[in-house]
Nucleic acid binder design. Structure first.
Lengths: 339, 339
DNA sequence: GACCACTCCGTAAACGTTTACAGCGGTTGC
DNA sequence: GCAACCGCTGTAAACGTTTACGGAGTGGTC
């Protein structure tokens, strides 16, 4: 078979030096006749440049890494769907890391950037420990964090105001006359979990509603765990007329449990989720959800990273923070019943 | 900052040669004292080996590529979820390619393997043209195809018997007393589309049911397109009592349209899908679906590829074909109504 | 005809690893 | 006391590119 052609093989066949071959292939000024010969030879040989050699010399891998907790989560999936084409258009490949929300693994990814296998990283940490923050600032390549990150880390950052998001949903439920609004959250030691818990309290306060322990339950950001949490919630017999869920998956679990319990949505209990994933739109009844602009956050993150990678000038630019405004998408799970 | 430490830096600090450093880092036999010094130096410097240099010399990138039509499709997603941990455990990174079902792009991915950016590729082609088949056999690295591929291509292959899958579903519907079983398919020029169309005809014949044009509609493998196809189907007024869908997404679309039309599922019309994705289980009513073992196919494909990559002996082994048996997962969309 | 400017190209040195080879001091065996 | 061998280590070449440098050739100017 013979170990694929190199620029050496091409040089030989075209009767020029390897330097000329390289120049032609990189579009540097060269005599037309030489260009022709080189391209012809490269074409006949089916030449493809060796990416390791290229990376070694040019210090660019033309790859970007994306690390999130679990690709199975539709939020991250939406981001990948946006990120991938943006990167591809700019000539970068996408390397995927599912960290399972394990901080140690995230730190390992950050550390491995030192090996230059990727030119940059888009990271969505679920938990933000001191070690992780340190690893982020110490990273040997540009990093863009989706989610809030302390300013000291000094990295670009795409965030959304989930506090406002919760507020929008609760205002909506309140306006519909709901007063016993429960909240089913994910783990409190995660960044979104903590933020949404606080947001719920604030929103209640702003509406003049009392905070009632019996209305709050914590599970995890998955459907089954969400369902279990809602079951526990109902078991406490709290007289609920609406359930705000920290996540669309939890909201789906809530629908399951409410149906099981023979409660009508939204007539008996209104349900709202967050993230506005396809699942919310596709559920029955369709779920009112707070869009946190996952797709847009993904795209913006990719763009920020590409800007950093573009030239050395912008590589040193001060950190940028992009905020995506949450929006409430109203569907039948809160305001339905027309059919 | 100074451009990261190399084995040269370590060698200097530990007072040994770069060769010794390399040996220690690769676990080759070395005097304990030297090992200690080198590891200490590497640790203090926070050394991470440069992957480009390593790949260049060792001819291994420790990356595997996965190319599918669209990561947004839950089937592919399930595969990624299985593939990723298998690869990670074996020390490989995952590079993702969404080709948008474009044959030219798939060929380009195959071709770019010549650049050795990945040690192998898992490919799911939607359409199998002659050029694509040629590109597959010409690939410069091991390829595993998920889906059927002609034997001449000579590559490993993980397939499922979608014919049998359709058969299982139709038998089930027939057993429930359904006789007017419609079929909503994806594009006929795709591999699964063609296979499932043929399978539907065969299954009908086996059951002694007539093939009726009015019962067949073609759209695409997405929810909206599926819904549109079902709408066209109903418009033909074909007196349907069951709809077999080539895909879970189409089945979801079918539920939407049936609900819109005021038809009850399964009382008036039973609905079955294929792929048994989370969406089928999570829909309301839950959708009976033919599991084509996506997760298992992903895992098996990854394992086949890893076996090829493991040693040179198995790299030359004859092509392997793994078959995953379809299974019917019965849910309320065909056999419900208890509540 | 000497000089310069310019264009194009080849030589060779890097990039950071791995590894074949040879050299070293120190056994062991006769 | 010498050869053979051992375990360990350093030197240097290679992997396939890119690129600084200078040389060869051409044409123009005085």
């Amino acid at each position: 078979m013979g170990e694929g052609p190199t620029i050496g093989t091409i040089a030989e066949r075209a009767g020029v030096s390897t330097a000329s071959v390289s120049r032609v292939l990189n579009g540097l000024p060269t005599r037309p006749e030489t260009v022709r010969k080189v391209l012809a030879a490269a074409d006949e040989l089916g030449y493809v440049p060796n990416s390791a050699a290229r990376s070694l010399k040019s210090r660019r891998s033309h790859q970007v890494a994306f690390a999130m907790a679990d690709i199975g989560n539709p939020v991250y999936l939406e981001m990948v769907r946006e990120i991938q084409p943006v990167l591809k258009a700019a000539g970068y490949r996408l390397v995927l890391h599912s960290t399972g929300a394990d901080v140690a693994e995230e730190i390992e990814v950050l550390r491995s950037l030192g090996g230059r296998y990727a030119d940059g990283l888009i990271l969505i940490p679920l938990r933000l420990t001191a070690e992780l923050a340190a690893a982020i600032s110490a990273a040997r390549a540009p990093v863009v964090v989706i989610g809030s990150v302390p300013e000291e880390a000094g990295v670009d950052n795409v965030r959304t105001d989930s506090r406002l998001g919760v507020r929008l949903a609760l205002d909506h439920l309140y306006a519909l006359g709901r007063r016993r609004i429960a909240f089913v959250n994910g783990p409190l030691d995660t960044v979104p979990g903590a933020a949404r818990a606080a947001a719920y309290r604030d929103a209640l306060a702003a509406l003049g509603l009392p905070y009632d322990e019996k209305l709050v339950e914590v599970g995890d950001f998955y459907r089954a765990e969400g369902a279990a949490a809602v079951r526990r919630l109902l078991a406490k017999g709290p007289d609920v007329d609406a359930i705000m869920c920290a996540n669309d998956l939890i909201a789906l679990g809530a629908l399951d449990v409410l149906r099981e319990a023979g409660l009508r949505v939204p007539e008996d209990v209104a349900v709202a989720g967050m993230d506005d994933t396809d699942l919310a739109a596709g559920a029955w009844p369709p779920i009112t959800s707070v869009s946190l602009g996952s797709a847009e956050r993904g795209r913006r993150a990719a763009e920020l990273l590409l800007a950093r990678l573009a030239d050395d000038a912008s590589a040193k630019a001060p950190r940028k923070v992009v905020s995506v405004r949450p929006e409430l998408v109203i569907r039948a799970s809160t305001k339905g019943g027309t059919r």
